Amino acid sequence: MVMQTSSNILMVRPANFGYNEETAANNFYQQQDQRTSLEIRDLARKEFDGFVSLLRDQGVNVEVVEDTENPVKTDAVFPNNWFSTHPNGKLILYPMFSPNRRLERRKDLIELLMKKGYQIDEIIDLSFFENDGQYLEGTGSMVFDHDSKSIFACYSVRTHPFPLNYVGQLLGYEVVGFHAVQEINGQSSPIYHTNVMMHIGRDLAVVCLDSIPKASEKQQVQKALTKAGKKVIPITPKQKFSFAGNMLEVSNDGGEKFTVMSQTALDSLNIGQIQLIEKYTTIISPSIPTIEKLGGGSARCMMAEIFLPRMSK
Rank of each mutant, 00 (worst) to 15 (best):
3 M>N: 12
10 L>A: 01
12 V>D: 00
14 P>K: 04
17 F>R: 03
17 F>M: 11
19 Y>K: 05
20 N>M: 10
22 E>C: 07
22 E>A: 15
23 T>K: 02
25 A>D: 04
28 F>C: 03
35 R>Q: 14
36 T>L: 09
37 S>K: 14
40 I>N: 05
43 L>D: 13
44 A>Q: 02
45 R>P: 00
46 K>C: 07
47 E>K: 03
51 F>N: 01
52 V>M: 03
55 L>F: 02
57 D>R: 12
60 V>T: 01
65 V>T: 02
66 E>D: 15
67 D>P: 02
69 E>Y: 07
69 E>R: 14
74 T>S: 12
75 D>P: 05
80 N>R: 10
82 W>A: 11
83 F>G: 01
84 S>D: 00
84 S>E: 00
89 G>P: 08
92 I>R: 01
92 I>S: 03
92 I>W: 05
94 Y>Q: 08
101 R>T: 12
104 E>A: 05
106 R>L: 12
106 R>G: 09
107 K>C: 05
107 K>T: 06
109 L>Q: 04
109 L>M: 14
113 L>H: 04
115 K>P: 02
115 K>T: 13
119 Q>N: 10
121 D>V: 11
124 I>Y: 03
125 D>Y: 06
128 F>C: 12
137 E>P: 10
137 E>N: 11
139 T>R: 08
143 V>A: 04
149 K>E: 15
150 S>G: 02
154 C>E: 06
159 T>Y: 06
160 H>N: 13
164 L>F: 14
170 L>P: 03
171 L>S: 09
171 L>N: 07
172 G>F: 04
174 E>Y: 01
175 V>K: 06
178 F>P: 04
181 V>K: 13
182 Q>V: 09
195 N>D: 15
197 M>P: 02
197 M>E: 04
197 M>K: 07
199 H>D: 04
199 H>Y: 10
200 I>Y: 04
202 R>G: 07
207 V>F: 05
207 V>C: 13
208 C>Y: 06
208 C>G: 10
210 D>N: 14
211 S>K: 08
214 K>E: 15
216 S>T: 15
219 Q>T: 11
222 Q>S: 07
225 L>P: 06
225 L>A: 03
226 T>K: 09
226 T>L: 09
228 A>C: 07
231 K>Q: 11
237 P>D: 06
237 P>K: 10
242 S>W: 00
243 F>K: 02
245 G>C: 08
248 L>N: 02
259 T>K: 01
263 Q>N: 05
263 Q>W: 02
263 Q>Y: 00
265 A>D: 00
270 N>D: 13
270 N>P: 05
271 I>C: 03
271 I>E: 14
274 I>N: 00
278 E>P: 02
279 K>W: 03
283 I>M: 03
290 T>A: 12
290 T>C: 09
291 I>V: 15
293 K>C: 11
295 G>F: 00
298 S>D: 01
300 R>H: 07
307 F>L: 11
309 P>Q: 08
309 P>D: 12
311 M>S: 12
